[in-house]
């Protein structure tokens, strides 16, 4: 909390330290928070794949609803248990996040080159885009052709959708903050660091979204003779 003597170097109004020093500290903080979030994504992947491979009680896929899956209309037989991704909505949302992330990075790049106006526009578009994708994600979860009660696949997909939704909401808030802070001059070509941090975060949620979407490749369980529960007689 020490304030430093005045120099030409841009300094934090809170601690008086050079902005670059604070930025390096903040970047490490954001990266470490992402480490914690990575663990959450690993748990979701682990849960999906674990239930997929066990197919406990033959309840991985909902009984009698297989036809509702193939929303793309594709009828391709792939080797092994890897199937074409049928939940194209996930891919559409992941693609949307990817585009918005690239746009945000473009804004950061322009900001570093001296154009705050481009950053303001980019952050605004990204904010609106992320809100739109949040709504799309919500609608997708609400319109799954199954209930969360319909087995492991339904459970895992529902929670993955909710996880994506929360990621999108948080990111929309951050992007909106960057829009506002750039607009009022707190983020500037001389002090672009917070925009960079949000761009790093957006990069991670893009990766997370793509990884979770990739899970939908694993549709048919390889376990054809699974453990049965609930029918103890057998």
């Amino acid at each position: 909390m020490s304030a430093q003597p005045e120099t030409n170097e841009l300094r934090s109004p809170t601690t008086g330290e050079p902005i670059a020093v604070v930025a390096r500290r903040n970047l490490l903080g954001v990266l470490l928070l992402i480490v914690a979030d990575v663990s959450g994504t690993i748990v979701l992947c682990m849960s999906y794949l674990y239930l997929h491979y066990l197919n406990t009680n033959k309840s991985w896929l909902p009984e009698g609803k297989e036809s509702l899956w193939n929303t793309t209309g594709m009828n391709i037989t792939w080797p092994g248990t890897v199937q074409p991704a049928v939940e194209w909505h996930f891919w559409a949302i992941s693609g949307g996040i990817l585009v918005l992330m690239l746009l945000f990075w473009q804004g950061v790049r322009s900001l570093r080159r001296g154009s705050s106006a481009t950053m303001v526009s980019a952050a605004l578009i990204v904010t609106l885009g992320l809100i739109g994708l949040s709504v799309a994600q919500y609608l997708q979860v609400r319109s799954f052709p199954f209930d969360p009660t319909d087995g492991g696949y339904a459970s895992a997909l529902t929670v993955i959708g909710i996880s994506n939704f929360l990621h999108l909401l948080l990111s929309a808030f951050l992007a909106a903050a960057i829009w506002n802070r750039t607009r009022v001059g707190r983020i500037s070509p001389e002090n672009p660091y917070q925009a960079t941090l949000v761009a790093v975060w957006l990069t991670w949620i893009t990766i997370s979204s793509v990884i979770l979407a990739c899970l939908t490749f694993f549709l048919i369980s390889p376990s054809t003779d699974p453990t049965l529960f609930g029918t103890f007689g057998s």
């Binding site: 849960s47 406990t56 009680n57 969360p148 339904a154 459970s155 529902t158 929670v159």
Partner: peptide, 8 residues
């Protein structure tokens, strides 16, 4: 959901 419920 049924992450930990074997019957489902």
């Amino acid at each position: 959901t049924s992450f930990f419920i074997p019957e489902r």
